[in-house]
């Protein structure tokens, strides 16, 4: 399935809903969208991975890039993910210790993410 990207605002958070496959071919589009959001002034970004059915190292690299960019801009970055196969990827790569991970968008935006 192709990559899908949709943005909405929840309070002061910008929520980017990602769907489909995030891989070496589609990750540049995710990177571009995140950069647009951050360059456009978004400082509290939540990426909702709820409809992602494939995520590889390239996609993870893009997410870490956004986290670092926001951190240097005094912003925050969080992920929403409740699928066990994806959570396993975060655990295996130790990225579960790098990203704030939340089960729902409500938890991510309400937790001051």
């Amino acid at each position: 399935m192709e990559l899908s990207l949709a943005t909405r605002t929840v309070g002061e958070h910008t929520v980017l809903e990602v769907g489909g496959e995030v891989d070496v071919y589609t990750a540049p589009r995710l990177r571009e969208r995140l950069l647009e959001l951050i360059d456009g002034g978004a400082r509290h970004v939540v990426v909702d991975l709820g409809r992602v059915d494939f995520l590889d190292s390239t996609g993870l690299g893009v997410l870490v890039g956004a986290l670092k960019r926001l951190r240097t801009a005094d912003g925050t970055f969080a992920l929403v993910c409740d699928k066990e196969p994806l959570l396993k990827i975060f655990r295996i790569t130790a990225l579960d210790q790098v990203f704030p991970l939340h089960p729902t968008v409500e938890a991510a935006t309400g937790a001051g993410a």
Partner: peptide, 26 residues
């Protein structure tokens, strides 16, 4: 080699190297 959490979060690590390390960890 796989990267640990401190290396992953290090500001000086570029995205390509990070992706390579994460790919190997996977």
């Amino acid at each position: 080699h796989a990267l640990d959490a401190d290396e992953l979060a290090n500001e000086s690590l570029n995205e390509d190297d990070l992706t390579t390390g994460v790919g190997f960890a996977l």
